[in-house]
Amino acid sequence: MQSDKTANPASTRSLNPNQWVINYADYLYRYAIVRINQEEQCRDLVQETFLAALEKADQFEGRSTEKTWLTAILRNKIIDLYRKKSSGLAPKDEVRHHEVLQEDFFDAENGHWNVEHQPKAFAAQPDEVIQNREFNHILQMCMKKLPALWFAVFSMKHMDEEQTEVICTELKLSHSNFWVIIHRAKLSLRACLEKNWI
């Protein structure tokens, strides 16, 4: 039968924890580091992902690849961490601090840019910029400066292109709050880039 070789590919999908580190550790770490931006925490997340995966190995049905399955476990852990980082008093103060900074961006009365905060033309050419190590460092630093909740929303939307609905549910946000954060995160990020680079 011609279809024999391709029949039921799921049956060939089993877990192979002996090879997990060599096959997926770097991949999972890279996935985490662009979303969490802290090496120590990302190493922990990779370890926790493998250990959690072992614990629920019996739930693996072979419908996805091992890699997809492990990534889904890691993703959930990242979102748990986003929630943890953005709840409580200190994170709320952090958000408030950034909101106060932004009050200066626009005239309170008419919403017009205040002169000293008006965007100015970027001096460096966009193509040069992206090759530049120092610029990359600044971009990373400016992302890190965002309040945890803003970073979470921003990265889920911009990097993962996640549905707005999903982000709102997972981070327990209203839609209007979501759009406010998308807006504020970009205002902060742009201002930080201008201040430190251009």
Binding site: Y27, Y29, R30, Y31, A32, I33, V34, I130, N136, L139, Q140, M143, S155, H158, M159, D160, E161
Partner: peptide
């Protein structure tokens, strides 16, 4: 470019 979804 700098934060690709699959990491660097």
């Amino acid at each position: 470019k700098r934060f690709p979804s699959q990491g660097n």
